[in-house]
Design a protein around this nucleic acid. Structure first.
Lengths: 248, 248
DNA sequence: GTGCCCGGTTGATTTAGGTCAAGGCCCGGC
DNA sequence: GCCGGGCCTTGACCTAAATCAACCGGGCAC
């Protein structure tokens, strides 16, 4: 995950992440050209649904800007988020035409899409793309397994701390850092969305956020803007092995 | 997942699942020959650790017979299973040399292994293998997301029912079915392992198993042998959309 | 301005599942 | 046959988080 970010940063080319993540690793102008031909952009407003679970989905694509979520819903309405898509993340799976999850824009969202059929043809012809996609999928699988540990074994407090750390790492690393090392970012999720991510209720999320604030681990400006004065202190609370990987 | 089983069954060739799962889909004797040259077998006894998280892992492979688990452990000992590997499942990731999870044999286990370096070379040269691997990884990702819903939102009873249904589907479909449609199988996991799968304690697992037995949803012969008189009744309790996909 | 709706907070109470503890059953070693 | 150790069950009790409910505050439509 982190090495993708750096890769993304290390190229200053165009506007479409798929280039970087699926192809650029072993650049080939032929492939790029073919990708160019079949790609197009779509925009969604905050709250809008990109696809419903069970619906036909005839494209794959990647997030250019904004944030989308994958969620599963049980008949009685219980919801679990199963994917959080930040810029450069990939959506859709080659070889499947029916969406397995609801995909929703939680902020205004721009996606770079490829019609599925031509994209699949491209994969079949260009090994690099398949390999890159494999790598990305394996990264996602790792993230999913990390997430399973969180859902199955962590306390509410640890869950919140983990989520904040994840967002801080992925989001704030590209953005603002105040003078004396504090991290700063806007939460891209409502309390309810956080709850769906963490397998909690929104009330518990709210209470734990208040608790972390009371304990000085985080500061809040308004309800969404988070300041983390000491990232290590937060990382302590995640319950994870606190080795490294942070910020490159 | 189910279509792999059928694929596996539809070929009556040799003893090594990797053939079927990673390659056979588009058979190519050249690739098979190359795979043959770099493969070897390893056996593990029940309880034995295949690799520890953090250790060097210089092979990839697939399960030939028996069952293995992937688990994550927090420093204070809390454990979460994040993968359950049944015959034909793949272990290890090309491009990573350090294992991210503990891999343990929960029954006697035979693995078919490939030294990582030559296998990676093979992937780079043969698009079919990379594509097949991508497909398998995407299946695993779907399974992981199903699992996340279970961990985050299901009750203990639903969790147990889901696990039994999963094992019944994957295991019993290949094995015994008694006369009047009842499914029958041996649990390949201890109560503690079930708990680690489900994000519960072993006591809760035990209580819920007793409850399902009391309610006539399952019967137990000894502690491990399960009889499911009416699979649909069990499926009702999983909380999942009870559409289809069962048994092909 | 007024009102209301949405997102968020906080409190009181309930409850599912965890924790701690006491056995039971079965199998293998002596 | 007896003992010991896994593995499992069951009971009594506790607690973290869910549930139910009241309320806050900002933005926006009228």
């Amino acid at each position: 995950m982190s090495h993708h970010d750096t890769e993304l940063l290390s190229h200053e080319c165009g506007d479409c992440p798929i280039r970087h993540r699926a192809v650029c690793a072993r650049c080939d102008s032929d492939e790029l050209a073919r990708l160019e031909q079949i790609k197009y952009y779509r925009s969604y407003q905050v709250g809008q649904t990109v696809v419903w679970s069970g619906d036909r989905m005839d494209f794959v694509g990647s997030v250019v800007s904004g944030i989308a979520t994958l969620t599963q819903t049980m008949e009685d309405g219980r919801r679990q988020m199963v994917g959080l898509l930040l810029p450069s993340d990939f959506v859709g799976r080659p070889g499947r035409s029916i969406a397995a999850y609801d995909v929703t824009a939680t902020t205004d969202l721009v996606m770079c899409c490829f019609r599925k059929k031509p994209f699949e043809d491209l994969i079949a012809k260009t090994p690099h793309v398949a390999q890159r996609l494999l790598e990305m999928t394996l990264d996602e699988l790792d993230a999913a397994r990390e997430w399973m540990l969180l859902l199955g074994r962590k306390t509410a407090r640890e869950k919140i701390a983990s989520l904040l750390a994840i967002i801080a790492r992925r989001d704030a690393s590209l953005k603002l850092r105040t003078a004396k090392g504090a991290l700063t970012f806007d939460l891209p999720l409502t309390r309810e969305e956080m709850a769906d991510y963490l397998g909690l209720t929104l009330e518990t999320v709210s209470r734990q956020m208040s608790a972390l604030k009371r304990d000085g681990v985080i500061q809040l400006e308004g309800k969404r803007h988070v300041i983390i004065p000491d990232f290590d202190a937060l990382a302590e609370l995640t319950g994870d092995d606190s080795d490294g990987g942070f910020l490159v």
